Each structure stands twice: as structure tokens, then as C-alpha cells.
Amino acid sequence: MSLENLREYLPILIPIIVLQLGLTIAAIIHILRHDNYKFGTRPMWILIAFIQTIGPLVYFFFGRGEE
């Protein structure tokens, strides 16, 4: 992949990267501030949160406990 190809895809990649980082940071902050999870432990959810974009979504849909 050349630098020209990368520049061509940057307008698509930047929003995706920002979305992924935002979701991951939000998930990590929520995991560290709360102790209740539907199942699993804090270290497990931290590891899952770092799995691309799907990790934070899995946490917010399936792991986040009632507050």
C-alpha cells in the first residue's frame, strides 16, 4: 500500500478510528467506575473492551450491570 492509497482512504478511516477509540475509552471508564456486571469480572471486561470496535459494544450490551 502506497502513501497515495492511504491518503485516499483517510476520510473514511479517521471517523472509524475516532469512533473505536471513543467507544473503547467509554467502556474502560465505565468498567473501572462500576463493580456490578451481569457476568464476568473486571479484568475479563477490560480485555474484551480492547477487542476492536466489537469489544466495547459487547460490554455495553451484555456485560454492563444494573446501576
Rank of each mutant, 00 (worst) to 15 (best):
F60P: 01
I16L: 14
Q52S: 12
H34Y: 11
L57V: 13
L32Y: 13
E67W: 06
I31E: 01
S2Q: 05
Y59Q: 01
I29K: 08
I51C: 12
I29N: 14
I54L: 14
L3G: 08
S2L: 03
I48W: 05
Q52L: 15
F61M: 13
Y9F: 15
I16T: 06
G65M: 05
N5R: 05
N36A: 11
W45P: 03
I14W: 02
P56R: 10
L57E: 03
E4R: 12
N36M: 10
R64E: 05
G40E: 03
I12H: 08
G65N: 08
I54Q: 09
L21V: 09
K38G: 01
E66R: 11
W45F: 10
L47G: 11
Q20N: 09
W45T: 09
E66L: 07
R7K: 13
R7M: 15
F50S: 06
F62W: 15
Y59W: 11
V18G: 03
A26H: 02
K38W: 03
F39Q: 08
Y59V: 02
V58W: 00
N5K: 04
F60E: 05
G22V: 02
G40K: 05
T53G: 07
H34M: 07
I51H: 06
L47Q: 03
T41Y: 06
I54G: 11
F50E: 00
T41L: 11
I25E: 07
G55W: 04
N5V: 03
A49T: 02
G55P: 00
I12F: 13
D35T: 15
N36V: 14
P15M: 08
L47Y: 09
T24K: 02
T24P: 03
E66S: 14
Y9E: 06
Q20P: 01
H30G: 05
